[in-house]
Structure formats: C-alpha cells, structure tokens
Amino acid sequence: MATLTREQARAQMTAPGTTRRKSFWKLTNPYLYLLPAMAVMAVMTYYPMAYGIWMSFTDYGLKNLRVNSAAPDFVGLQNYIAILTNNVPQIANFDFFYTLFFNLFWTFSNVIFHVVIGVLIAVLLNAKGLWFKGVYRAIFVLPIVIPTLVVANVWRNMFDPDFGAINQFLASMGGLIGISPATFHIRWIESLNPPIPGIPLPLAYFALLITNIWLGWPFMTIVATGALQSISKDFYEAASIDGASPTQQFFSITLPLLRPAMVPAIIYGITLTFNLFNLIYFVSGGGPLRETEILVTTAFRLVNEQSLYGVAAAFAMYIAIILLIITLVTNRISRATESYDV
C-alpha cells in the first residue's frame, strides 16, 4: 500500500467511478448555493403566490381562515369580473378604472419630478470645487432613512388646516403683503373641490405629490451623482474647445451619458411609487371619497377591513399583471431609444 506510485494514484483518481462522482458534485454544487435562498422563498413567496392564484378563483373569506374549516367554493372568474364591473359593494365608491388611472397618473407625475429635480441637483452638486458636498448630500438623503410612518405623520400634521406648519407659514407670508390669514385656512386633505378647474384631482393629490417629491428625488440624485462622476472630463473639454455652450454640453453630453444609469433607477422608482402604500395610507388615507386611493391601498382594505380574501387575491393578480406590463413597456422604450447613446 505504501508503495502506491504516482501513476497508480493518478489512475485511481481518473477511474470511471470517481469521475462520475466528481461530475455529479460539479453539477449539484451551484444548486447548493441557491438552496438556502430558494428554500425560504419557496415557502414564503412562491407557495403563497400559487396559493393566491388558486384563492382568486374561490370565495375565500374569513370563514375559511379557521383551523379545520371547510374548503372555499370555486367561483371561476367571478372575482375578476366583479372587480372590473365595480361590483364590490363592501367598499363604498369602489371604481377600479378610476383607481387604476389615478395610480398610473400618480406614478408618472411623481417619477418625472423625481428625475428632473434629482438630475438638476446632482449637476449642481457636481460643480467642481464645491464646498460642503458631503454635508448637502447627507441632508438630502435624510428622507430615505426616516421611517415612512414618521414622515407621513409629520406631513399630515403639517397639512393640518388649523395648526399645520404649511398654513401658518402661508398666512404669515400673506400677512406681509396684507392678505387676510383666513384665506390660508386651506383644507389640504379633506377639500373636495379640485383646485385647478377642469382637472378632476383633489387638493389631497397635490399634498401627496409635495410629500412624495420631498421623499423621492434624493434617490435619483444619488444615482445621477455617481454617473456624473464617471463621465470623463475630456468630453467637456473637447466640447468647449469646439465652442459648445454649457447648455449644449448638458444636453448632448451629460444627459445621454446619464441615461444608462438612470433607466434602471427610473424603473425601480416607478415600481416603488406605484406601490407606495405607507405614504398614501397615512397621509390622506385614500380620501377624500377614495379619490387618492391607489391599487395597493385598495387591496389592503379588501384584506384587512373586509376580509374578502378571494377578491383581494384577484385584485393582487391585476396589480402584478399591470406592473409587469409597465416594466416591460418601460424596458422596451428605454431599449428603443438606446441608439441615442453616444
């Protein structure tokens, strides 16, 4: 045994049996790395999703949640049809297409502000030799760190018609130019009259928009700052030698080179804003008269207030499908304009 030569050892190592074991190990090895993650997600996300799809075809309700309760009845597409035809009497003023339209408008109006302000501030912050860059950046990122629950309640308090900081500030500003403070008793959240004639959006939408602009653009600024720092200075030097104005430089160098970084951030921002539950739920509560309700807050009401689990599951399916379409379309648009790159 002790005289096992190197040749013999090599022959043993390459014997058919061992190779098979080795290739088997090689095959399963990558899956072992996935195992912990996939095991948790299988139980906590994939199984519930499959279960949810089944639930969406049943009349699953509170009665089925008890241990050893009877199975719910299969109702086919009834839940899906009920949602589309607004046949959900448990929720007052239920209007699927209004909510969907508002949700889409809410998402895109917010993201446009986030991106435009975010990029502009990033350009300002990128000015060479600017002092206190780190301080500014830390202050701007602050909103991301604070719990949304706190943000939402602070802003709701600031929008209070009697004691809110915003009305008080407006009144004291107005007082300087002689406008009576009573003009600024603005009912930001509760007011039913659309502030801009012809556009059926309640004042609460604008209050939410202000809050979410406060909350949302810093993320875009961070992404844009990183991208700006990776743009070579040579481009700008060459452009200014050719006599391009700073505005021209911004549009023909800065913006196109920001695009690859901004597109994923924008898609992420869209999905985040589309499902922005906490802010809407705690600032306006979907009011007045469900006019600022979005899809996820409606789904939450279906589950938590009405226990209509079957309907809620169908509703969640709609949300997932709509989000999938938005992601695919945004992705397609961004790829279609890719030739715009330098």
Binding site: T45, Y47, V303, A316
Partner: peptide
C-alpha cells in the same frame, strides 16, 4: 415587482 400583500393570507 410582485406586491408583498399577495402573500399575506396564505403565509
């Protein structure tokens, strides 16, 4: 992009 809320009841 899947809303978390979808998983609550089954979980």
């Amino acid at each position: 992009i899947v809303p978390l809320q979808m998983t609550f009841v089954p979980v």
